[in-house]
Write a protein that binds this DNA or RNA. Sequence first.
DNA 1: CGGACGATCCTTTTT
DNA 2: GGATCGTCCG
Length: 762
Amino acid sequence: MQDYLDQLNEAQRSAVTTIDGPTLVVAGAGSGKTRVLTYRIAYLLQQGVPPWRVLALTFTNKAAREMKERIAALTGKEVASRLWMGTFHSVFARILRVEAEHLKFPSSFTIYDTADSKSLIKSILKELQITDKEYKPGLILSRISAAKNDLVLPAAYARDTHRLAADRAAKVPMVYEIYLRYLRACLQAGAMDFDDLLLNTNLLFRDHPEVLAKYQAQFQYLLVDEYQDTNFSQYLIVRKLAEQHKNVCVVGDDAQSIYSFRGAKIENILNFRNDYPGYHLFKLEQNYRSTRNIVNAANSIIANNKGQIPKVVFSDKEEGEKLKVLQAYSDVEEGYMVVKELQNRRLNATCAYADFAILYRTNAQSRIFEEALRKNNVPYRMYGGLSFYQRKEIKDLLAYLRMVINPRDGEALKRIINYPARGIGKTTMDRLEKAAADNQLSLWEVLTHPELGRVGFNAGTLKKLGAFVQLIKSFERLLPVMNAYELTTEVVAQSGILKDLHMDKSTEGQTRVENLDELLNGVREFTEERIESGADNKLVNFLEEVALLTDMDQGDTEDSDRVTLMTIHSAKGLEFPYVFIAGVEEGLFPSPMSGNSEQGLEEERRLFYVAVTRAEKQVTLSYARSRFKYGEHNFVTPSRFLKDIDPAYLDGVETAVGGRPAVASGARFKRSFEGGNRSAAAKRSFSFQEESPVRKPAFSAETFGGTGGDISVGSRVAHERFGQGEVLSLEGQAPNLKAMIAFDNAGTKQLLLKFAKLRLLS
DNA sequence: CGGACGATCCTTTTT
DNA sequence: GGATCGTCCG
């Protein structure tokens, strides 16, 4: 253990060994935050603190898992597995299962995902006879979510003039009413959504002091990762739990607060000193990740924000390359330029595909890169798309399992009552839902009610409904005698899911069957692992794990060499040798949705800071001059954030043609974005050199890319790699003009003019 | 009742 | 461009 302390710098070591009293660790990007957290926990254990008295909270499963592994390496698996370590959501879900009865929830409560929540809101809207045109379920859910994260219950909501006024302004004055019914329906269904896990923990602690006292006493030491991302609900849980021992250590970086849209309060970290007087403060300012150029560029970006915790992040590493900027005509070309640049780097630096990440602001941008990567046979792994557990066939099966565990789960019921098709249609469901709402019952209670016939179903429908009820009950009976894997297998067979999928002979149908197999394997592995570690291995635990999983949490097992594709948000906490930040454009980054408020803009800027600081060796920024949006292409301008970077750390802009910076220096580059008449440039279609008419680049886009220009059949041209050759033929339309070229020494090739770095010789 | 095919809306980021 | 929702017809 002593050896490990020697590996730390002074600030890190103090942060690890100062274990008593409140502690704030301000950890700049790449400053060894995770290392401090893991060593601190290992140190606690070494000082004789029992593992079950340590509570460590993270935001992602991945962070929790990694820390657990690293601690296990220091202290042994046995001890590490007894720590209370996990995401806020998973840890408190675990506690809520134990204490559920205090809150009138079954301990087998379901966790609703966002789709379930939206679907429930739709049902409520129907009940209130409001269309989901006027009341967008997503918007309503986000307002309810915001209220919950601020611990504003319906009663307080009704008195909250701010919220009410905001709802009226947004033309959704009924949010309060919906919120009320939503909570009631969740209780009815024995279900909690993500926010409820935290809200109900707060209610538990508020209304049951003896329960709170129990956990206060147990958790002698608390640690919180990414404290700048906590919302009020999480903040209060931590504060309450820490009240007795006051040994709370929070780690975070105000400069990396990027989750205010889901209720995170940057104030939590800024106000730590007020909440915990006499706190210890440690600042980790040395960045061990990135080159000096990267750190300096990042610092110059974040310097544009106000109201930060003062700190100076520095790097001792080599100066490294400057940040590079790629300019493309279009979004599609941006994809190709990035991939080409990536491939060049990989060959020149002899590094692996896995050393690269392409980061973007919105998930919608991923498609372009996927296509470019696929066409160039570059292996990649994309995060943030549909996760495995969100596929239809998986959700269907999970819904069956959910109903077995908790038959009151209304969203699961709605999903499977007619899947596979058993002739229970919309009319029947409407009546059922109405009966449930009128009688304050769950759908299942209506279905199993002796007076079901009174609702007005005909004999045929009653028979179908009865068969469904019997099916679910037959599964319920298996619950005590089968393990999770056996039961799941049984459900797949008896529900008719397998038969339904086997009827579909298409490739998609086959994939679905394979996916079900994979889920079955997942259940088996889960059960085996849990039995081995002595943890809960019931079906309910599996469902919980799955509900709180994101797609960041899978597929890590295959150690294949792939480029990473993800949003900047999901890249937080990760690092890559080479990072591409794509779509650095107005209208995209900063996001127009963040409003033009100073606050919104500062958060976007922090996001930019996060993106740049992911890189170890080099950062390439890219933007396009035109981009498809809603199916039509628009001309766009480079992001204002490019001007936030000190030009001293920035290379010139590189365009597709010429292979040389079109604008020579960072300073010139910076100037070229200020002001300027864009419409002229727009009219010239693919011309991107709107300024500096005096000095034309050696090989302009117009020559080769835009129109095909001077190149014609018979021209002599030179290519960077293939040498000299003669143009045999031209085909296609600009800007996708292709040329067949017979090279003197490299054979005949077909090249896309806008990508080939051709030079005209004759 | 169920499947197929168009109109419509849209997009920030996620536990 | 694409997912989702609603309508239409078998």
